[in-house]
Amino acid sequence: MAQPLDWQKSSFSGGAAGNECVELAQSDRTLLLRESDDSSRVLPVTPDGLAALLARIRASHA
């Protein structure tokens, strides 16, 4: 039986209800991303892939 995932909310979560945020969990060597308001859609990424994604987001907002 698979262990339940421990989803962590982003420290930048917004919205009055607190449900407009990104959540992150780890499954083996894969990181899983999902949006709180649609938890059925999960994006698997590697740590390097997530680092690249975050770098591109930061660069586009600089």
Rank of each mutant, 00 (worst) to 15 (best):
Q3P: 00
P4F: 03
P4N: 09
L5W: 03
L5T: 04
D6S: 14
W7V: 13
Q8S: 11
S11V: 07
S11A: 09
F12A: 14
G14L: 00
G14Q: 08
G15H: 11
G15F: 06
G15Q: 09
A16R: 14
A16Q: 14
A17M: 05
A17P: 02
N19K: 09
C21E: 12
C21H: 13
C21S: 14
V22A: 07
V22F: 04
E23D: 09
L24P: 03
A25I: 03
Q26L: 07
S27H: 10
D28P: 00
T30P: 01
L31Y: 00
L32W: 01
L32Y: 00
L33W: 02
E35V: 13
S36G: 07
D37E: 15
D37R: 14
S40D: 12
S40G: 15
R41Q: 05
R41P: 00
V42M: 03
V42Y: 07
P44Q: 11
T46Q: 04
T46F: 10
P47N: 03
D48N: 12
D48T: 13
G49C: 01
L50P: 04
A51C: 04
A52F: 01
A55Y: 01
A55M: 00
I57N: 03
R58S: 14
A59W: 01
A59R: 13
S60Q: 09
H61E: 08
H61W: 06
A62G: 15
